[in-house]
Design a protein around this nucleic acid. Structure first.
Length: 809
RNA sequence: GCCGGGAUGGCGGAAUUGGUAGACGCAAAGGACUCAAAAUCCUUCGACCGCAAGGUCAUGAGAGUUCGAUUCUCUCUCCCGGCACCA
């Protein structure tokens, strides 16, 4: 009897050995095919890792170990995304400097990871808060600035009164701060903004070719929110002003009013004296509500400005209203109301007694007045134009295109593409971030810090609490703020805002290719060798990180820093692990499971196998401690099976082994780890049943097991006496050995299985039918109408209905 | 409301993409070993009828296509995710 498997000792032994031999260092020049396998790097929080975090890391570890065994040169690195609010808030709460907090948290995370036996190349470890790293984050900002893609703005931005900082649209959950749930306010602050919208079209178009999950691509498409339409310019009657309305559906023969958002700059310019008091009051009350309150209103409200615009095609004067259902930051902030053909416009017109003409006849053929919501024919539904002069009889959608052309030819409008995506508000009024490398000079304005002076170091400071005034805490450090202008040498002040948490993670995958380069963010040779990331694994971040990184990458491509148009060729989405109670794992609920405890009790190999065996990789699944027993038993049984190894191959195992080699290779490639694990269990079950396994067969089995359970596999291989070259390679399967001599074939009567027979997989039809009929004789008394034979699969005999239902009774 | 993804035993989930539904595992029940327990091993394990042989029903619901549907088509219900007074 072999001794009981001592996972603690054996796992420690191999982890130390791998670390000492630097076993997983990537080679920048190898001629072997390269694979860059990357996890979304973690944010080292104060809570430490819970069992959900390593799930993705285990998957990439399996994938990359598998690739190494197949002879690939693999880059599988790890690093830390450590700037931003969570670290700063943690530091404030615990009264330690964020730098110290981050150091401690990283140490914790790293120790936890070490126990799981990952194959990271730690020589490439990076940390976004390291000056040698953020030097290049700042460098990218400067390039954006030089190309006019980073600019200053005074537009009102989202301000979280609780986090005391401005936020990008991507940082919102609806109208609330994604971090703390506080409803954001609009605040006018001088901001740095990145022109991500300049890349909207390319980010949209290039999605198609990516090997990404459909729901992520869809989320990005929704977020970019492209819509084609036309900006129509209306003359305002008795005024020199004009109002521009954006519409995708110019049903202009039916346009009977215009609505301005309360914040629209024209509101007070065009409001007549009589209406002034009402408009002022309306705008006041609209401003007092936040976006959520406004959207929650059941009824449309609005007030007439007293002004009219001229409808180009009907020649009629149409009233201009102010209403809060028009949103200042959507389109042009002004909408033309076509109440017969838009539900929202209909409600508004109905309430305020505005004309509702019909200009489209829908499928119901109804040509009467549109007097109830059901009769509204909205865009996207089929219909024909009516009461529309030269458009009459045309299909709705065709007429819209024709209208756009017509308006453009008349100079009344201009076709435009509108995006929901807004430019990236890039300033944060907080301490723990990359300083924005800009100097403000009274003479030269905003001046880039010369590249040779990078990084602009984040100054050490005693008090880094947010001021809440819209000024960064850095503004209080006068000897840091006061500097000289790089252009004129005169006195100037540093930019005191910092970059958002998402800056450092927008390009980190490039730094892993060349982490110690002091002359460039990534050397061209290294970039060409490694790019793009072959497989990127992570959850969440469907929009923010993945859209920001794609934006920066495309910009770096444009300035010839990278050679691919997309950073991540393939993305595998990771389903979360919930707590046993079905809730999110959180310190707050006290339901967190620490991987350290699981590894201690069951071992890293069992832990790894369990997380992969839980279900499909992309599924969200609840942790179930009882279920670990299964994989834990599996590990113990593997250990015991070494006693069954004999010199001679076991014939009975041959075909199953071939199938297993094939299946596990395919499953790893496809990220179907759950079925791969189950296949190994099937093979082990067979080995135990046969009570013997050939030494060569055992070797193959261990090779298949290595990516999943590397510790025990290495230990058993060592005990069997194989050296590294001999066994650290992926087994191949022989397709000829996959085919069976005889297969079980189901015999169906009218699609119901009545018997099984054994046949050669390529048995001729006559033979198959004869055997089948013999097996189900009693069902054929009423005759046979038809026979279907699919070799190797099935025989189906069709009999008259009366015979199909009953058996012998 | 629009878009994307789902729904299979007590539970997690399989099913070669139209061919024996429930692989593999958990939990549960019975048995062996043991003074006992743990561990291990053996057996049972979708529902219903039946002593059994066997049969009937069954992949969210309902229709359809097909010799044959968890898989394809349509309608509906519910769940998860993205967007949303988006003009």
């Amino acid at each position: 009897m072999a001794e009981k498997y001592d996972h603690a000792a054996i796992e420690k032994k191999w982890q130390e050995r791998w670390e000492k031999s630097n076993a997983f260092a990537a080679d920048d020049t190898s001629a072997e095919p390269k694979k860059y396998v990357l996890d979304m790097f973690p944010y080292p929080s104060g809570e430490g890792l819970h069992v959900g975090h390593p799930k993705g890391y285990i998957a990439t570890d399996i994938y990359s170990r598998h690739m190494r065994m197949k002879g690939h040169n693999v880059l599988h690195p790890m690093g830390w995304d450590a700037f931003g609010l969570p670290a700063e808030n943690y530091a404030l709460k615990n009264k330690i400097h964020p730098r110290v907090a981050v150091e401690q948290n990283i140490a914790t995370f790293k120790a936890q990871l070490a126990h799981i036996g990952f194959d990271y190349d730690w020589s490439r470890e990076i940390n976004t808060t390291d000056p040698s790293y953020y030097k290049w984050t700042q460098w990218i900002f400067l390039q954006l600035f030089k190309k006019g893609l980073a600019f200053q703005s005074n537009e009102p931005i989202n301000w979280c009164p609780s986090c005391m900082t401005g936020l990008a649209n991507e940082d919102l959950d609806g109208a609330a701060c994604e971090r703390c749930g506080t409803v954001v306010e609009k605040k006018k602050l001088p901001q740095w903004v990145l022109k991500i919208t300049a890349y909207a079209d390319r980010m949209l178009a290039d999605l198609d070719a990516l090997q990404w999950p459909e729901h992520i691509k869809e989320a990005q498409r929704n977020w970019i929110g492209r819509s084609e339409g036309i900006n129509i310019t209306y003359e305002i009657v008795d005024s020199n002003e004009r109002v521009v309305c954006f519409t995708t559906t110019p049903v202009n023969f039916g346009a009977t009013f215009i609505v301005l958002a309360p914040e629209h700059p024209l509101v007070f310019k065009i409001t007549t004296k009589d209406q002034s008091a009402a408009v002022v009051a309306y705008v006041e009350q609209a401003r007092s509500k936040d976006a959520i309150e406004r959207a929650a209103q059941k009824e449309k409200t609005g007030v007439f400005t007293g002004a009219y615009a001229l409808n180009h095609v009907t020649g009629k004067q149409i009233p201009i209203w102010v209403a809060d259902f028009a949103l200042a930051d959507v389109g042009t902030g002004a909408v033309q109301g076509c109440p017969g053909h838009d539900m929202r416009d209909f409600e508004f017109a109905k309430k305020y007694g505005i004309a509702i003409p019909r200009v489209v006849v829908g499928m119901d053929g109804n040509t009467g007045p549109i007097d109830s919501p059901e009769k509204v024919i909205e865009k996207g539904t089929p219909g024909k134009m009516i009461n529309s002069d030269f458009l009459d009889g045309l299909e709705f959608s065709v007429a819209m295109e024709k209208t756009k052309d017509y308006f453009e030819s008349k100079g009344w409008g201009k076709k435009v593409v509108n995006y929901k995506l807004k430019d990236w508000v890039f300033s944060r009024q907080r301490y723990w971030g990359e300083p924005i490398p800009i100097v403000h000079c009274p003479k030269d304005g905003a001046v880039a810090v010369p590249e040779k002076d990078l990084p602009v170091l984040l100054p050490e400071v005693k008090s880094y609490e947010p001021s809440g005034t819209g000024e960064s805490p850095l503004a209080a450090i006068t000897d840091w703020v006061n500097t000289t202008c790089p252009m004129c040498g005169g006195p100037a002040k540093r930019e005191t805002n910092t970059m958002p948490q998402w800056a450092g993670s927008s390009w980190y995958y490039l730094r892993f290719m060349d982490p110690h380069n002091d002359a460039a963010l990534v050397g061209k040779d290294k970039e060409k060798y490694w790019a793009p990331v072959d497989v990127y694994v992570g959850g969440d971040h469907a929009v923010r990180h993945l859209i920001y990184a794609r934006f920066w990458h495309k910009f770096l491509y444009d300035i010839d820093m990278v050679s691919t148009i997309e950073p991540f060729a393939r993305l595998e989405f990771l389903g979360f692990i919930l707590a046993e109670d079905g809730r999110k794992m959180s310190k707050r609920y006290g339901n967190v499971i620490n991987p350290d405890d699981v590894v201690k009790q069951y071992g890293a190999d069992a832990f790894r196998l369990y997380e992969m065996f839980m279900g499909p990789f992309e599924n969200t699944t609840a942790w179930n401690t009882a279920s670990i027993n299964g994989v834990s038993r599996f590990v113990e049984r593997v250990w015991r099976a070494q006693e069954l190894v004999q010199a001679e191959d076991c014939k009975a195992l041959e075909r199953l082994l071939e199938q297993t080699v094939k299946k596990i290779g395919e499953d790893i490639e496809a990220f179907k780890f759950n079925t791969a694990v189950s296949q190994m269990m099937i093979l082990l079950n067979a080995i135990e049943k046969e009570k013997t396994v050939g030494k060569n067969q055992w070797k193959k089995f261990l090779q298949l097991l290595t990516p999943f359970a590397p510790h025990i596999a290495h230990e058993l291989a060592e005990k069997a006496g194989w050296n590294r070259e001999e066994w650290e390679q992926w087994p191949t399967h022989d397709p000829a050995k996959l085919a069976a001599d005889v297969v079980k074939i189901a015999v169906q009567i009218n699609g119901k299985v009545r018997a099984t027979i054994e046949l050669a997989p390529d048995a001729p039809e006559a033979e198959a039918l004869m055997a089948a009929r013999a097996a189900v004789e009693k069902w054929l008394a009423g005759g046979e109408k038809k026979a279907v034979y699919v070799p190797g699969k099935i025989v189906n005999l069709v009999v008259p209905d009366a015979q199909s239902g009953r058996g012998a009774d």
